[in-house]
Design a protein around this nucleic acid. Structure first.
Length: 465
RNA sequence: GUCCCUAUCGUCUAGAGGCCUAGGACAAUACCCUUUCACGGUAUGAACCGGGGUUCGAAUCCCCGUGGGGACGCCA
C-alpha cells in the first residue's frame, strides 16, 4: 500500500508556524515512503473562508518548498459528492433528521452545564425501535445528525501518542449537515479521506477529540480507517499558546524578517522531532531520516534564538550571489540599487558570516551603494586632527597602491606607523569615512571590495580636499 | 464540570530497565583569536514535577497526586 498523506488547512487566515510544521511532517512522511502528499483546502465555513487566505497558504507552502503531488482540492467544489453520501446515510439509517432549533440546543447545553455535565445532544430526534418521535414541526429546516454507536468504545493506535480510547457514551450524535444542507467538518474530512485514499492522517493535537467521531463515521460507511498521528502544539516564545491575538505569525513574516526558508524548515523539523543529536540538516537528509517514532508527544516552545542561530548558519553557507539578490530585493524597497557600486556578490561574501538575517545583510551592504552620512557625534569622536592628517597620508599612498587586500593592509599599517598611531586609531576613522560606521569587516578587504575610485572619492570628500 | 493528552537543564531535545557520577544544541558566563564589531575556538554552570509501587536494579514500567495543554459548535 503506498502512503498517502494530506495537509488540510482551512482558509480563514495565513499559514502559521504550527500549520507549517504539520505540513512539513506530512510532506516528509509521504516523501520518505515514496508516497503522495495531497493538499486539500477545507473551505466549508463559507462565512470565514477567503480567497486571500487560500493564496496566503499557497504562498507559504511555496516559500517553504513543500510541493504537493495532488490538489489543491477545494471542499466547496465537492458538494454534490457530500450530498450524495448524506442521502445514502439517511436511507440506510446511519443518519437522521433532527428538528431541534439552535435555541433549544442552547437551552439544553446551559442546563447541562448548570448540572456540571458534559454538554451534548440528548438524542431526542434519534430514531429507536419502539420509540415514538414527535411530528416534525412545520417550517423548521432540519439538520442531519450521525447515528453514533451508544455502546462500547472506539480507539486507535496513535502513531505519536500510543493507544487512545473513548467510550462511545462520551460521544453524541454530531451534526453532519447544517439546516441549509451544507456538510460540516467532521463529515467532509471523512468523505475526503476515504475518497482520496488517505493512509496516514498527520494533524494537530487539537483534532484528537474528532478522531473517534471520524472513525465511527468511517465504519458506518464501511470505509477503511487510516492511521492517525497527532502532533502536539507549538507554544510561543514566552510559553503561551499561539493564537491570532498572541504571537501567531504567518510563515511569510519570516521571509520579511530575513530568514532563509531552509533555516525555518530545519528549525521546524527539530521542534518536536529528533534524530539523536543531529541539529543541522537539509531537507534531503531530513526526508531520509524522518519517522513518526521520534516525534515528541508533549508541546514544544518556540525559541527564536535557536532559529536565529540556524539562520546565521545557513547564511554563512549560502551562495553569495543568492544572498546579494536577497539583499537587493530588500534594498530596492529603500530605493537603493546596485548600479554603479561594487560587485554585490563580493560585498555579500564579506558579510555573510557576520549577519544573522538578510535584513542585517541588506543594512550592511547599504553604505556600499549610497554615500554614508555619519552623524556629527561619530565624526567628532573619530575624525580628530591627528586622524585627518593620517587619512590624508593614506589617501596619497592609496593612489598608486596595488589594489589587493594584502597590499592595502600593508599600506594602512605603514601609514599608521608613519603617523605614530596604533592600527585602530587609523582603521576606525577610515571605517567611519568609508562606511559611516566604526565597525566593519577587516579594513583591507573593505578597501579592496569598495574599489580605488570610491575609496579615494570618499576620503577626499571627508577631508574636504 | 466531563472526557482526552502530556511532564528530562531557561529553551529544543537524546534516553525503549543496568551503557546515566543523565549526552547534544540554542541561550548564559569566562577565556582565547583579533586592526574594530562580529564570526570562530576552548571551558564552566544548568535538568529526570511529587508520592507510592514493580524489580537485584527505574529518567525509563504501573498507580495516585500536582502542573501544563486540548476538546466539549449548525468552526475547522
Amino acid at each position: 500500500m503506498t502512503v498517502r498523506t494530506r495537509f488540510a488547512p482551512s482558509p480563514t487566515g495565513f499559514l502559521h508556524i504550527g500549520g507549517a510544521r504539520t505540513a512539513l511532517f506530512s510532506w516528509a512522511y509521504a516523501r520518505r515512503h515514496g508516497g503522495s502528499f495531497i493538499l486539500r483546502i477545507e473551505d466549508t465555513d463559507v462565512a470565514r473562508s477567503t480567497p486571500e487566505a487560500v493564496q496566503a497558504i499557497l504562498d507559504g507552502m511555496q516559500w517553504l518548498g513543500l510541493e504537493h503531488d495532488e490538489g489543491p482540492f477545494y471542499q466547496m467544489q465537492r458538494m454534490d459528492r457530500y450530498k450524495a453520501v448524506i442521502a445514502e446515510m439517511l436511507a440506510s439509517g446511519s443518519a437522521y433528521y433532527c428538528y431541534m432549533s439552535k435555541e433549544e440546543l442552547d437551552t439544553l447545553r446551559a442546563a447541562q452545564e448548570a448540572r456540571k455535565e458534559k454538554p451534548r445532544y440528548d438524542g431526542r430526534w434519534r430514531p429507536e425501535d419502539g420509540k415514538a418521535l414527535p411530528p416534525p414541526p412545520e417550517g423548521v429546516a432540519p439538520v442531519v445528525r450521525f447515528r453514533n454507536p451508544v455502546a462500547g468504545a472506539v480507539g486507535w493506535q496513535d502513531l505519536v501518542k500510543g493507544r487512545i480510547e473513548f467510550a462511545n457514551a462520551e460521544l453524541d450524535d454530531f451534526i453532519i449537515a447544517r439546516a441549509d444542507g451544507t456538510p460540516t467538518y467532521n463529515f467532509c474530512v471523512v468523505v475526503d479521506d476515504r475518497d482520496m485514499q488517505i493512509t496516514h492522517v498527520i494533524r494537530g493535537d487539537d483534532h484528537v477529540n474528532n478522531t473517534p467521531r471520524q472513525i465511527n463515521l468511517l465504519q458506518a460507511l464501511g470505509a477503511p480507517v487510516p492511521q492517525y498521528a497527532h502532533l502536539s502544539m507549538i507554544l510561543g516564545d514566552d510559553g503561551q499558546k499561539l493564537s491570532k491575538r498572541h504571537g501567531a505569525v504567518s510563515v511569510m513574516q519570516y521571509d520579511e524578517e530575513g530568514y532563509l526558508p531552509e533555516a525555518v524548515l530545519n528549525y521546524l523539523a527539530r521542534l518536536g522531532w529528533s534524530h539523536g543529536d543531529d541539529e543541522v540538516f537539509d531537507m534531503e537528509r531530513f526526508v531520509s531520516w524522518f519517522d513518526l517514532d521520534h516525534i515528541t508527544a508533549s508541546a514544544a516552545q518556540f525559541n527564536t534564538e535557536k532559529l536565529n542561530w540556524l539562520n546565521a548558519h545557513y547564511i554563512k553557507q549560502a551562495d553569495p550571489q543568492r544572498l546579494a539578490n536577497e539583499a537587493g530585493r530588500r534594498l530596492g524597497r529603500q530605493q537603493v540599487g546596485f548600479e554603479g557600486g561594487p560587485a554585490p556578490s563580493r560585498v555579500a561574501a564579506l558579510y555573510r558570516d557576520r549577519v544573522a538575517n538578510l535584513n542585517e545583510l541588506a543594512d550592511a551592504m547599504h553604505p556600499y551603494y549610497s554615500l554614508p552620512k555619519p552623524g556629527a557625534e561619530l565624526l567628532a569622536q573619530h575624525l580628530t586632527e591627528t586622524a585627518r592628517t593620517a587619512l590624508a597620508m593614506l589617501r596619497e599612498r592609496l593612489s598608486d597602491c596595488p589594489w589587493q587586500a594584502a597590499d592595502l593592509g600593508q599600506a594602512v599599517k605603514q601609514t599608521a606607523a608613519a603617523a605614530g598611531l596604533k592600527m585602530p586609531q587609523l582603521a576606525i576613522p577610515l571605517r567611519v569615512v568609508l562606511l559611516g560606521l566604526p565597525q566593519s569587516p577587516s579594513i583591507d578587504s573593505v578597501l579592496e571590495v569598495l574599489g580605488r575610485e570610491r575609496v579615494i572619492a570618499r576620503l577626499e570628500s571627508a577631508l574636504g580636499s
